[in-house]
Design a protein around this nucleic acid. Structure first.
Lengths: 190, 190
DNA sequence: GACACCGTGTTGGATATTCAACAAACAGTT
DNA sequence: AACTGTTTGTTGAATATCCAACACGGTGTC
């Protein structure tokens, strides 16, 4: 797929607007942020903003979209059908999160978009737990609840890990998450 | 004096081109630097460069000009007619240099413009030694040599101070420079 | 309700920059 | 001397952004 070359000015404008919003989101929620303020921080004209984005919510959505796309691409090379590979995938997810700690903390926070977690859950589900759960001998009518349970648990643990300054290395965290999830699924096994 | 508001794009373009050249000057002399390279580092189109500057030497000269203008403005509030105030002025110069250490090191280096030191000498002369020497009872036919001697000595000491990572505080260095200069001038006194 | 202030969404003309291309000059190699 | 690769200086059309202005709506105060 050919990636068309974006004009430098456009690239720069979008970059600084995104950085600006991420910066402001650290100190106030999206509902209190104005387009005027975003532009002041970015040092970009307001009419230019409107030629790129509809409002502050549109900008936030595009930041999330890019983050999720980037995350998908990064994790795409890790497919897993076995327990050991599932563990590695969780570790990869944690490594990705740690590399993008700043972004993750801000997007996950109450200042951002509540539905973002749901989208992240979907990504994590598609990259790890989905295959894993289908590989397990689990009741079909319980399978999706098991997945949701596992993913929700993972997200919460990851958030807490971030808040604690990533006090444990990704590998160890992956083991913890893996064992918590595995035992939960195994207890449903026929 | 009203400072006319510069278009943001222009301001940005000049800023990143200056930063780009300063960055490259750290690793190679001005004579080996191409306009093409400056533009690549700055991520600015080459034709835009030529709409702002004639060549790489022109850009360097404008960086120096701005530096000297800024230095002049900063030191302008310090006028000195007495020894104690002369000492304070030297300290102010050293404080200014320490605040702009990175810029000073690069512009003073062999990678830059040899004549830059002469220009800095002129600034220092106008802000301190000029009044100071004229206040001293020094032979008129020796006065200008005394000034040149003092200023050249100061510049060399400042360069060495920068190279040593500013190992002594500005106040102490000012005292050293002051006493070296004073004794030199006093030895010419009638 | 009137008023002042702030932010929004939009507009049109001007400005600055991008992009691709070109001819020429320069430097290094054979 | 010929060749190759790189950089220079310039050009013109297209694009993106800036700037100032405007009408409108929302908020808070009196």
């Amino acid at each position: 797929m050919s990636s068309e070359k974006m004009d430098r000015r456009k690239k720069y404008t979008r970059m600084v607007l995104k950085e600006s919003l991420m910066k402001i989101l650290k100190v106030k929620p999206i509902s209190s942020i104005t387009v005027k303020e975003i532009c002041e921080v970015a040092d970009i004209n307001r009419s230019t903003y409107y030629s790129h984005f509809q409002d502050q919510y549109d900008l936030l959505k595009q930041i999330e979209d890019e983050f999720i796309e980037d995350m998908n691409i990064t994790l795409h090379s890790y497919d897993n059908n076995k327990d050991e590979e599932a563990l590695q995938m969780i570790e990869q997810i944690l490594l990705y999160v740690s590399k993008n700690r700043d972004m993750c903390e801000t997007l996950f926070s109450d200042h951002g978009d509540i539905s973002f977690k749901n989208r992240i859950m979907t990504v994590a589900y598609n990259h790890s737990v989905k295959n894993w759960v289908s590989e397990s001998n689990i009741h079909k009518d319980v399978s999706k609840y098991g997945s949701l349970f596992a993913i929700s648990g993972c997200i919460s643990v990851i958030e807490s890990w971030l808040s604690n300054g990533m006090d444990k290395p990704p590998k160890e965290m992956a083991n913890i998450i893996f064992n918590l999830t595995k035992n939960g699924i195994d207890s449903f096994s026929e």
